[in-house]
Design a protein around this nucleic acid. Sequence first.
RNA 1: CGGGGUGUGGCGCAGUUGGUAGCGCGCUGCGUUUGGGACGCAGAGGUCCGCGGUUCGAGUCCGCGCACCCCGACCA
Length: 596
Amino acid sequence: MKMSVLFSQTLREAPTDAEMPSHKLLVRAGFIRQLAAGIYTAMPLAKRSLTKIEDIMRAEINAIGGQEMSMPVVHPAEVWQETERWYQIGSEMGRFKDKNQRDMVLAMTHEEVVADLTRKEIHSYRQLPVLIYHIQTKWRDDPRPRAGLIRVREFTMKDSYSLDADWEGLDKQYRAHYQAYFDIFHRCGISAIAVKSDVGMMGGKLAHEYMYLTPYGEDTLMLCDACGYSANRQVATFKKAALPEEEPLPTEKVLTPDCKTIAELAAFLNIPAAKTAKAVFMIADIPEGESSVQKFVFAIVRGDMDLNETKLVNALKASELRPATEEEIVAIGAVPGYASPIGLPEKNTYLPVITIVDELIAQSQNLVAGANDAGYHMLNTNLERDYRADLVTDLTSAREGDGCPECGAPFREVRGVEVGNIFKLGTRYSDSLGCTFQNKDGKEKPVIMGSYGIGSGRLLASVAEEHNDEYGLIWPITVAPYQVHLVMLPSKKDDLAMEAAAQLYEDLLAAGVEVLFDDRDDSPGVKFNDADLIGMPIRITVGARGLKEGMVEIKRRNEKEKRMIPLGDALKTVQAEIDALFAEIQATIVKVPYEE
RNA sequence: CGGGGUGUGGCGCAGUUGGUAGCGCGCUGCGUUUGGGACGCAGAGGUCCGCGGUUCGAGUCCGCGCACCCCGACCA
């Protein structure tokens, strides 16, 4: 490609609304342009990289038996109603009506379509196992798109779906993806770690997320350096330090003016925050069939702990969860700032109340809790004796330094970007859409499903995030839009540089090398800066100065050293460099032990 | 959905007490340059986010919207 005709322009300055390095550089280098919040155009350079990333994904999924297909972006609402996700998912789902007023859905993912196909196509165990996949547009109307291509509303995803006759089959396909995903990330030039994750809106039994570690990531991960345990904070469990057991003491109501927070309360009473019980009030929508009921949730955690809303949602099986307002707290008969389940009216006219208590509270005695009386707290409260819980479970968030659930060593907290995920769906979708097959004994059995996704744009942004410096992007050879940036330095005196460069360009193309040829009539500074910004892995410079000696310059983007080589050797030197760069990537592809 | 911020030429920005819009980069033409964002001359390009209001007069003041960004909630 000649730069004189490339549909793209570099910018000296990044737009102010870009913050992450990858976002700024992809915009400055002319890879992406924004159309609206979370909606981007991939310009020709980005498109070439995306195609390479997608080809890598194709190769790896084909290698584990995947069959590529293409499923629609627009779905009738019916299939989403059958799985009830039509009701469970809120504003994030794109819905519209067609001209006949039929409800339609913009695909957020394709489990419904796969399940619909499965129930129509799969009848016998002889047709299983199957692995199908496609690379397709998704729409998720994220409440908060941000960070360039990292978190967008419209995106392209490689999603594969495994169909199996039994759980062993699912496990096999799941493990195949587990390794294939590492191979994909490594081939793209980034490392990622797999962590246990929440199943979220996908449902199912077990899930891993692949995290590219960067401080700009928006997920928080808990890692154990001692035993290798790793999990998203949303689901990370940990060893909770129980306080020494005490004999229950009688409750006592005490005056605690201006103690609306745990910190104020602990300071006023001169006790550690761990000796208090913190009540958090939420309003939950809990689906029941095609409708849902709202409940007022009293969540109780120890004063020194943080409520983990993902754990709470999962414990409640809620579709929506939001903080209760002060008015709502008053409406159920509680006193904001001094509320607790103790002394709460049996009945209220607002909403049914559900009390859910962290397991550590059940092991703690004589905690200070609100008295449901403005300005008063209750000393020595004890679960069971003083109030009852509808549910006792793990409700708190792990933090840096908390004990690993496997070995007790302290957690390290890191940030990451989720670049892929794999789910053991089981029969979540088969059951609701009726995907069954006949086994050898002629018995009807549900198809066992798995689903596996990687966003290609997010992966591109992560590669850009990993590989850049103060001058611009530094693409790994495997995803670079072009392998070589051929810089021609023009001269007014003669056309020698242009002629030599044009000939080399033709020779490189003929040899199958991917070349971006800067044939523009610009000054060297402009050209070198653009080359650094766009970031092709190999740069060749053809200028009058070197040509006098019959030489051209070759330089790797990720190294400082430049080499002068004879013009006649340029082609084979470039080919050797390309091979070396591929070999470097190849060396990073390693077997990763499976950890459940 | 809460909190904060920003909307002026393609990009980055300035615009005073309210007086009819400028700068740098980029773009076009001509000329001089050519190994790390060169220089001269001449140009093009703006419904100042939108609507309403105050005023003789609004980029500027007031009101209501909209868009985008950041933090949180949420989410892949």
